[in-house]
Design a protein around this nucleic acid. Structure first.
Lengths: 110, 110
DNA sequence: ACCATAGATCAACTAGAGTTGATTCAAGAC
DNA sequence: GTCTTGAATCAACTCTAGTTGATCTATGGT
């Protein structure tokens, strides 16, 4: 994917970055993200595919959604989740800023 | 800073990425990183500057060091820590891969 | 109406991470 | 040698996050 470098959306606040970092720092949640890589899927499908207890999956989906990595829609009894790649891009932008602020002796951090 | 996109070093393993993500997901540790942005500093300086208990700072420095974000050197009784910006770049590379794997319907994640 | 299903949420529990004050070890001064 | 200082480490404790099985609410079928 072409590297956007600076993201067009407003820069991440620290708290949002923290939520993203924490959400991604859990192997199981990475599995969820990978399972959604091919496109939107319903919870029932993910539960089966990942072999997770329903409440466990719901918990993790909530963390990812609250962090902004997923969005959902309801269709009858079914809830479908899909990825928001822009959240990953936003985090990369945040990391770029962190690196720029703190990676060069010329800059001063207070 | 110029965006390297793909990093020259071997790609991050998941466990290393996890360590980096977790290390950065703590506000206090971000403060440490910012304090080191202007260059190498000794622990005694950081303790005073950040107003932290010595053992508390040591704990957090260890997490950052173990994750690869800091390196240290000893000079007499003094331990100096400095940032390793390449760790941040590596994490950005890892995120770029995550986005590439999982951000496009064309790719398949198993 | 009743029954089944999907999935979020809950409360209790477990596991992991952060904090604290004490201790230990190494370096340095005398 | 003794004493001081810097900083890592320790054990006990506190706090946060993850897990579990049950419950609740909404949707759908008959």
């Amino acid at each position: 994917m072409a590297d956007p470098g600076a993201v067009a959306s407003p820069p991440l606040q620290s708290e949002q970055a923290r939520a993203l970092l924490r959400a991604l720092a859990e192997p199981l949640r990475l599995q969820v993200i990978e399972a959604l890589g091919s496109g939107e899927r319903c919870v029932c499908d993910l539960t089966t595919d990942l072999g997770l207890a329903q409440s466990k999956l719901s918990f993790h989906l909530k963390v990812l959604k609250d962090a902004g990595l997923l969005s959902d829609r309801q269709e009858g009894r079914w809830i479908y989740y899909r990825l928001r790649p822009e959240a990953i891009d936003a985090l990369r932008g945040w990391l770029a800023e962190l690196g720029a602020q703190c990676g060069r002796p010329a800059s001063t951090c207070t």
